[in-house]
Design a protein around this nucleic acid. Structure first.
Lengths: 342, 342
DNA sequence: TTGAAAGCGCTAACAT
DNA sequence: ATGTTAGCGCTTTCAA
């Protein structure tokens, strides 16, 4: 059922039916009711391509995943962000498009999506420290918002981020307060902006406590089980192994914990592990567990906010770029056992 | 730059330009080259909404995530499947649409996406044992493919699945061979078809070994860290606790392992854990690690296949529903320590 | 308050 | 080998 058929059925013009359905004021209430009911009854829904052609709006927003970063889509944080954005989109009648890009081709994908009028705007996820995509999007005039920031980018651009530096500083401080001195950092790839910031938080806390930075205890790789395992295993074989691990992802933390088991060490008593996005609900039971930071709900919230900023920008292009810094929800539990001196 | 402008620029009709760009044979090679070059030079890309309107095809496929199942999008397996599908889509010039649905509203979302001609077909993810969506999609005439199966659905429908029953049977057999007798099952929600099949695999193996099924060792919940932790913690407090855990997700396995640590037990020596989608690359180093099944790459492959089946179906609606069963890639490592008798 | 008609950018019959 | 023309299904002036 399309507009024409519906209007013929009602003995009205397409115009009137369209107006009635879209809430224009000049339609009589009587007609509107008749139209709306007939539409529902005959299961009419407007063809979004035709609407898009006529209005010039796609009502779709694009997300692009670098294909090389296959782990990215598997990163739970990614899903949290997307879930948040999805919620805001549906409240505003937007749909979400998903595209992927081979390495280096991301700018092309954005351009293609926008030029073909598939999307009205895009969300840039996983920005690197040096991120040419931001300039590209700005130059192309594509409405966008960044999840995260890019430190090397000095022009204004809209972003939403959680305070990664603060999270890692606070968590590291917590470990230091517990008496740990050899604290390892199992980080993501440090050309990613978030990873660089996390390292900074870690370094800041170490410096503030006058603890030396040991390059052998600072590892950077993709955030996978395997990478976490290898790094932790090697570190635990050192003469003076670390007594604690700051880990950038719950996924790499799986590997880290396994390495600890394999080394015959006991979690919490011999070694503490803080993973960035581990679930924290345990702590509510007041149990003896290692400490953690939690940002899962913060990330979901970031998705909601980012979507709203982008939608505002699409509707009002001359708006100044909005930015929003979210504090990660940090929860720390008690450390168990005799502590780090072994 | 649109078709009209481009054709005026070239002194050709829109038709000829369109034909040149779409590879129709009746265009002279000379003209084609001239057109293609001008298009590239002026950065022309066809408006997909206009193309869609004219052709009746959206070149978009929809994926729907139940919002209630917020964990679903966070499940790594979900990402693997999507990544696989995305790859096939881009090879066939399809884009991927992402929608979400509040509980029970999934059929509406499918209908809406299809009626509005936003998508040409949809992928049904996370089918339940009883899955009304399949009948709904069939009745609506929407091209679709199911990732997984629905046991209560007896009519023909296209699906791609991994052999969950076999995976869990084999992994359970492996534990039994190692001498384990009290094997716990930490499963997902068993109204989900895959979870039901996994339980069946577990039960089959136990029955074949004449081992009793102990309801207290069979847990079913959402596959979260918290749920895994609670279940394992309670089981480990039993008089005769399990010596091994079969876990349905690497995420719940995090909770299970933590509960084991908290109980003062040593992984592998005291308790073995097999998690469904744990990464297995460890084993390649020939280390002493617990055993695992791996299906990560199988799931990605499932995504590729499912996408292809759907595309074929869209292009050829009278095709009989294709189905495809994939064998999960199963890898088992050596169990460490003195074994389960403690 | 309603309708006629043009047009959004493309494809596909149907000429030529 | 190229062009003319009529849509695809909607919105939006402009008229009535």
């Amino acid at each position: 059922m399309n507009l024409k058929e519906l209007s013929e059925l009602l003995g009205l013009s397409q115009t009137t039916v369209s107006r009635a359905l879209n809430g224009y004021p000049e339609v009589s209430e009587k007609t509107r009711i008749r139209v709306v009911e007939a539409a529902r009854e005959h299961n009419y829904s407007p063809n979004s391509r035709a609407t898009g052609l006529a209005t010039g709006r796609a009502m779709v927003i694009g997300h692009v995943i670098p294909l090389s970063a296959r782990h990215e889509i598997v990163n739970p944080v990614f899903g949290d962000f997307v879930a948040g954005a999805l919620q805001t989109y549906s409240q505003n009648n937007y749909d979400m498009m998903f595209a992927h890009a081979v390495d280096g081709g991301e700018a092309e994908i954005y351009k293609s999506l926008y030029n073909r009028r598939v999307v009205d705007g895009v969300v840039l996820q996983g920005p690197k420290v040096v991120e040419p995509r931001i300039k590209a999007l700005r130059d192309l005039g594509i409405p966008f918002v960044v999840h995260g920031r890019s430190s090397a980018e000095h022009g204004p651009y809209p972003w939403v981020d959680v305070d990664n530096t603060r999270s890692f500083r606070r968590a590291t401080e917590f470990l230091i307060d517990l008496g740990h001195r050899r604290i390892a950092l199992i980080n993501g790839l440090e050309d990613m902006d978030f990873a660089m910031r996390r390292r900074k938080g870690y370094e800041d806390a170490m410096a503030a406590a006058n603890l030396p930075l040991n390059p052998d205890l600072m590892f950077t790789e993709e955030m996978t089980e395997v990478a976490g395992h290898h790094a932790a295993r090697d570190m635990l074989r050192m003469e003076t192994p670390p007594t604690a691990f700051m880990v950038s992802s719950m996924i790499s933390a799986i590997g880290v914990r396994r390495a600890i088991e394999e080394a015959g060490l006991k979690m919490a008593r011999d070694v503490s592990v803080i993973a960035h996005d581990d679930d924290l609900s345990y702590l509510k039971n007041g149990q003896d567990v290692p400490i953690f930071t939690a940002t899962r709900s913060s990330v979901r919230h970031a998705g909601e906010i980012a979507a709203q900023i982008l939608i505002d920008r699409i509707n009002n292009p001359q708006l100044a770029p909005q930015t929003r810094m979210l504090e990660a929800e940090i929860v720390v539990g008690r450390s168990t056992g005799p502590g780090p001196e072994r």
